[in-house]
Design a protein around this nucleic acid. Sequence first.
DNA 1: AGCCAAAAGCTAATCCGATTAGCCAGCCGT
DNA 2: ACGGCTGGCTAATCGGATTAGCTTTTGGCT
Lengths: 189, 189
Amino acid sequence: MPRAGLDAASVVACAAAVADEVGFAELSMGLVAERLGVRTPSLYKHVDGLADLNRRIAVLALNELGDAVRDAIGGRSGSDALGAMARAIRDFVVKHPGRYAATVGMPGGDQADPLDVAGARVITSMAAVLHGYDIAPQDLNHALRTLRSLLHGFATLQAANGFQWDDDAEESFAWLVAFADRGLRRTGG
Amino acid sequence: MPRAGLDAASVVACAAAVADEVGFAELSMGLVAERLGVRTPSLYKHVDGLADLNRRIAVLALNELGDAVRDAIGGRSGSDALGAMARAIRDFVVKHPGRYAATVGMPGGDQADPLDVAGARVITSMAAVLHGYDIAPQDLNHALRTLRSLLHGFATLQAANGFQWDDDAEESFAWLVAFADRGLRRTGG
DNA sequence: AGCCAAAAGCTAATCCGATTAGCCAGCCGT
DNA sequence: ACGGCTGGCTAATCGGATTAGCTTTTGGCT
């Protein structure tokens, strides 16, 4: 029996792909093992069970999302950066609904936890976008949380297909960006 | 052995309470049965398995949320209504994180599906709040989706304790409402 | 009051996915 | 070539969901 040549990274990558295809809720160790041409218990040599696998998928997703957002806002500012960021998130979630779903509701660890580190990168990019607006320093955290709520909710509804914006999705998306832009201006601070 | 006198409604109510206490992800048939002083298989006389139970919890939650929001915005309009609605949602989610979690990612059925009916009631209240703003008719749907994204994301992050707004939560909340209010004004329609 | 069918509980058994235990072969450095 | 570590496998365990089939209560009817 030849070795399959697996490691933690390849298992997680495969699991993320499976999650995107069948939905995060349907992800199972057996499905991943089958995809890798391996028996289920073999996975335990690389990841520490399903909970650990889920968390690693979340870390992968947040890192990928962080990269995508960083790249998207590079060289832009203001509403331009805001729109680019929103679009990057939207594209990511539409393309990878399973791995995005893995990130929601995942409890955080300490600051050194890879999950928190990856999450912090995304937040950092959001903060960078906010710097393009005239927001009082003491309001930055509030604005950050608000923007996070908007974009996260938007992403979650997209992932869950929560509403049928099949038809005029693009228009609604543009409206959302404009809404956020208005909301971030003249903050009264 | 005396009858326990259960019916679908009491089972769902109990399950919702359990979900609020232990978290939606930890909800199990066994936990609900134990709480009701009954053996697990007995529950199948009232609900059609765990998936059905989950869906019923979601229906219950959306109905309760719909009531809460309707009551909150009664007699108010504009930013006043907006703030009341946001607060109603927030209070509900903080008080009932488990049943709110049951609603996210629950696939919809047809229009007669109780879940869709309950969801539509919440949406109707949101639409009512929007009527207090000067939004062009063709933008109403976009505004609705946007507002839904913001409030849903906000609720989800609260339920998941996604960020530590333990400290100045109230201030951030007020900022979010003000942000939405600004975003809904002068829509350029 | 007594009878009967449906409903509601129960026990025992099954199924399935996660997880663990313990065995064995392939790969690496000497 | 040898020895140990690594990664894969089979077999077994565990736990929660679900099903099958039995029994008793309950409510309606005569």
